[in-house]
Design a binder for these strands. Sequence first.
RNA 1: GGUGGGGUUCCGGAGCGGUCAAACGGGGCAGACUGUAAAUCUGUUGGCUAAGCCUUCCUAGGUUCGAAUCCUAGCCCCACCA
Length: 422
Amino acid sequence: MATVIDTLQERGLFEAVTSPDIGRLVENPAAVYAGFDPSASSLQIGNYVTIMGLAHFQRAGHKVVALVGGATGLIGDPSGKTNERPMLSAEEVEQNLEGIRENLSRFLDLNDKQAPAVIVNNHDWMKRFTFVEFLRDVGKHFRVGAMLAKESVRARMEGDRGMSYAEFSYQLIQAYDFLHLYDTEGCRIQIGGSDQWGNITAGTDLIRKLRGVEAYGLTFPILCDSTGRKFGKSEGNAVYLDRRRTSYYQFYQYFLRTADADVIRYLRVLTFVPMDEIAAMEEAMQSAPEERIAQKRLAEELTRAVHGTEGLTIARRASEVLFGGTLSGLRVDDLLEIFADVPSVEKRLDEVRGRPLVDVACAAGLCRSKGEVRRLMADGGFYVNNQRVTEHSATVNDDMLIEGRMVVLRSGRRHFLLVRIV
RNA sequence: GGUGGGGUUCCGGAGCGGUCAAACGGGGCAGACUGUAAAUCUGUUGGCUAAGCCUUCCUAGGUUCGAAUCCUAGCCCCACCA
């Protein structure tokens, strides 16, 4: 019978494992954990790979524990980082934890009858230690040689930046977390991105030493796009799972724009779409790449998984309108939702109505000068409510005022500006 | 400390008394094409009450009918020599 390990392997969620014996362990219900760093108030799509890993385990009937790093977040994981990060305050970490807990609860079933997922915070047990106790109980079992050999430490020592003692000790805390979760939740498996290998093996070693038990680590590849860039950044900004940081529309669009070379891989890693369906899409792509069937499916599946059917509907409607579809028939309230992440300005009615469009567009900030607006009009790149306007002398007439409450200005294909009448 | 060279519109970089709002390249912004891809092609790129006017070529003065261009002083860069 296929185990969760087989599933992870065939979907590209498998990079390395500490021992192949893990295959036997997962033939029966086991407990697995993965950690999430509270370095921001929302998880990013990059974290979603880890979430998928946990979700696959849960689907296979295993107990899943998501650890949020209330303690480790105060230190900062050096793994995969070239520089020491600025330390977050306790309040920041506390706030971020809240957001991340909310994120996680959307993807892991906390009420599953057989194997409900659990969210724990390592601060709850770390706070009980005094420094001396921690050194005696945990530090005593680590050899500096082994710690220095970790990739995360070596990379820093080779550079000219070095690392602080605090970050150096990070691996001890994560190792202890694993031990603690073994004791309290029966976790014998930790999963994470490949950059977590060092931290994970620190934990398996500790458990072997102190409990004489074999614990397992499993890593999956860090998701990159075909140009080698780390996946999940959109114009330099990360794609977040929180709609307040990445709107439904932006989220949906990010995936719709996935390169052909990446989309099949993403479908395997980020969705539960059955493998045979993915294979069919891969074939369909050969004959009709312009249909972008795979991209549409990817965007749809992920948006629904992360933001629900309602989020998907809004993202789709927004896509239609923001790509030049007609605004007629849409109500102001719909438009406000659709244009949620479009910048907007407030103007009084008398500042808009009957005024030259050139003046209004400039005052609203669509362009820096009136000359620029005129140029834009001459180029055919100026739109009011998605209708091209080329006449320099045009004024804002009553038809342009949607319900008398707003005007949608647009420059070029995609730059919108909402003028709200107040 | 000495000697040369220089500071130009978003960047690089021409211009060296009128024809300069300033060549050319990059970038930006638009348009066409297209699969919301990549590439390509085209237009545009100081402001305005717009065939005209105004403010720009490090800063402050000056020469001249006229200065980005010449002179003086100041500030800042770069190169070489000590």
